[in-house]
Amino acid sequence: MTAIAWACVGCALAVVFVRRRSTAIGFVTLQSLLLAAAAFARAPARSPEFLVASGALLLKALAVGALLVWSMRRTREPQPIVNDVSAIIRLSLAVVVALVAAATVPGFASGAPSAEHAAIALVAIGITITALRRATLLQALGLLVAENGVATIATAARGGVPLLIELGAVFDLMIIVAIATAFHSRIFGEFGSGDATALKGLRD
């Protein structure tokens, strides 16, 4: 479990770093699949609800990935979005935030301390992605990564928390289907590009 958790963190950091949207989507899907594999590995020793939750994770990984690729294909950027913050600085900021979060958040007493740290790091990195990246699709990916962190802790905890996993899966699907796809297309249609800096209207 620990190895998988840190692999997920690595995927999250990769999402911060990479330039292309397709690579980022691939890393997030990989992350979700890794989590699903870990859940299935633990499922035999736990309650049948947990098996259902593992299935939900797998489905979510595949469905969300497919939807994201479809949405990306529909909205080809006319010119590459160059980020104002360079990749190295993005990566170091993400690492710093993850370290601070892991250090300051108190423990949950769930029986898997390293997985806990990994989960907290994932959530922090996910929010950082939303703050740092310019493309709107990548901002939605940030929320996905954060939710994967929650799923990590739900999987690693003693006995598992299937309800949390299922709720998280539903949340993800809602976010992706409603906000990312529909709004992303709308934004693309309005502005001609999915660039978040064009959206300055979030004020009175």
Binding site: V100, T104, T128, A131, R133, Q139, L199, G201, R203, D204
Partner: peptide, 22 residues
Amino acid sequence: LQSGSLRVYVAYLLVLVLGLLA
């Protein structure tokens, strides 16, 4: 305080939460 950009607001949120935790 409102700049209009979503990313700045998320950054506010992150700073606030981490600051409180620290």
